[in-house]
Computed example of a mutant assay.
Amino acid sequence: MPTKSRGAALTILAVLLALMALSNFGKPFAHNPGVGFVFFGMRLSGIANKIVAPIFGIILAVYVYGILAMRKFALPLGIFYAAYVIVNMPLFILRYHGTAVMQEHSWAYLVPYPFVAIGVSSGAAWLLYRRRTDLR
């Protein structure tokens, strides 16, 4: 039985999510103290970062595989990850508003970043939902 193509948009979003997975795998090895996985609004460091960042890297890698292979498990994983990003982003802003952590970044980064992060995570989940009958 021939399978339907996942399409260009899902493929691009999968590549962007794969880059995020690679970024998560690299966070425990960063020498910059300002680089750490953000977990429910809190930037992690030390052993917590070394544990949580790779776990999310694995979750994203499995999710990317699910998108590329058009697997059914990709949809609930995508909904979970999109919801996590939507919750995580404002928690980070609320926690670090007015602190040196927020001042590390320019407005050129801080303004578009939430739109890109939420757009990629939610966009992939939405496209998978729309294509849910094509998932196997």
Rank of each mutant, 00 (worst) to 15 (best):
I47G: 09
G78S: 04
I79C: 03
I55P: 00
Y81D: 04
L44M: 08
I55W: 06
Y63W: 02
I67M: 10
A61M: 11
M42E: 11
L60S: 06
A48W: 03
V62H: 10
V64F: 08
L68H: 14
F73R: 13
I58K: 04
P54Y: 11
G66S: 03
Y65S: 12
G66H: 07
Y63H: 07
N49P: 05
S45G: 08
A53M: 09
P54V: 11
I59W: 14
I58M: 04
I55N: 00
F73T: 09
R43I: 02
I67C: 04
G46S: 03
I79L: 15
N49A: 01
P54I: 12
K72M: 06
N49E: 00
F80C: 00
A83P: 00
V64Y: 10
M70C: 09
I79M: 12
G78Q: 02
I59D: 08
V64H: 09
F56R: 10
A53Y: 08
L44F: 01
V62D: 10
L75S: 12
R71H: 09
R43C: 09
L77S: 13
L44W: 03
Y63M: 02
V52Y: 06
I58G: 06
R43D: 00
K72N: 11
P76A: 05
S45V: 03
F80Y: 06
A61W: 08
L60C: 04
A83D: 00
F80V: 01
A82I: 03
R71C: 01
L44R: 02
I67K: 10
A69G: 13
N49W: 01
A53E: 14
I79V: 15
I67D: 01
L75H: 14
A53S: 15
L75I: 10
A83R: 00
L75G: 10
L60Q: 07
I51K: 05
Y81M: 11
P54T: 12
R71Q: 10
M42K: 15
A74E: 05
M42G: 12
P76M: 06
L68I: 13
R43Q: 11
F56S: 11
A83N: 00
R71T: 05
A48M: 06
A69N: 14
A61H: 09
R43N: 05
F56I: 07
G66P: 07
P76S: 04
G78R: 02
A82Q: 00
F73A: 08
I51T: 08
G66F: 04
L68C: 12
M70G: 11
K50C: 12
I55F: 10
F80K: 01
P54H: 12
F73E: 14
Y63F: 09
